[in-house]
Design a protein around this nucleic acid. Sequence first.
DNA 1: TCTGGGGTCCTAGGACCC
DNA 2: TCTGGGGTCCTAGGACCC
Length: 422
Amino acid sequence: MYTRFALVDCNNFYASCERLFEPSLHGRPIVVLSNNDGCIISRSNEAKALGVGMGTPYFKARPFLKKHGVKVFSSNYALYGDLSNRVMTVLRQLEPRLEMYSIDEAFLHLDTIRDRSLTRYAGFVRQTVYRHTGIPVSIGIGPTKTLAKVAGHIAKKNAECQGVFDMSEASIDDILSCFDVSDVWGIGRRQTERLHRRGIRTALGLKNCEDDWLRRNLTVTGLRTAMELRGISCIALEDGPLSRKSISSSKSFGVQVESLSALREALATYVAQAAVKLRGQRCLANSLQVYITTNRFSKTARHYSARQVLTLAEPTASTSFLIRHALAGLSRIYKPGLRYQKAGVVLFGLVPCSFHQPGLFGAVDRKSGPLMAAMDRINEKWGRHTIQHAVAGLEKPWKNKQLKKSRAFTTSWKELPVAKAR
DNA sequence: TCTGGGGTCCTAGGACCC
DNA sequence: TCTGGGGTCCTAGGACCC
């Protein structure tokens, strides 16, 4: 049977979410900043048209944004996560074989759509998502995921496509010959440099490149990308239950941090966040990594970055236990007298709770399990830091800044939008 | 003053085993 | 002169994605 993948991509997702609750911003340029109000990570079409670059540091772009009346938002993940769920729910109702690829993208299998044109069907999907959620999407269709991504690009960039493009509507080679190789899914900066050195600048060039050279220079992933461009599907739709291999939590600080006690607070806070996710996934972790780093862009101070991996005697999901190990790791890599900019933790070696056989002397989770479950319930009901470990600190002066954040319109009763009749 | 956060996969090289 | 060979596992680091 002939397989067809569709890539559904929310247009300028974060900017579109913000605009949803401030309709006066329609037609006006908007940008959304990264976590610490650091970089620009989402731009409305109007902002793109002004030439605002993706990933530009905010402090550099600020005068320009002000001059052109660009509305600036801090990122509001409670809002984006909730709207993403709504989009995915609508899509899943239309097409159950769905892989949620990122917060704003999903792959669908279109094998079952036989009796009508895929372009028309995709147009229907697009309208339905918009009607139910208010989020505009583009849809690309192709025989492999990589070609569906190419089609998605074309759907988004060309107004005459009306948000939908199907690769089978044109000659694939013609399309690939005009498609920049650096825009191909899986081809990043380094690979682009290598391809350019060999004189390959378009997706068609990559498609026709010799397998041996690809295998040697771009590894098996590069070869797989080329095969996908040839229409041979090598990357399957992952529509099974999500099972992560690692869970991490890290953040830049709002102010630079020198003291071990502040680093301990921050790290304990991040460990607690990661542990909540771990329990939400009904898993235990058998090792963790902690790391700290100074500002890598600093021209005056030497950059220091260190990490420590800790293997646990027995896998656990207990916040207390994980914090204790993380802080022991921290004390081994902490160097006094430096100005730290970021800390983080990664939990890995995840095993489902149900698979785990408790050790003879362990039984950590049998004791802490009910306590953690109670903590999670309280924090879910009353807000994130209602109860927490004392070592995570109360004031949290190192917390990052998010000065321009919109409200949690859809996930908090206190922050519901208010409509006024005239 | 000021530059995100959370993931996945691949490879090379070392340790270890028989 | 001359010091095995082949396999597995683990880890750090790099590259990529959104």
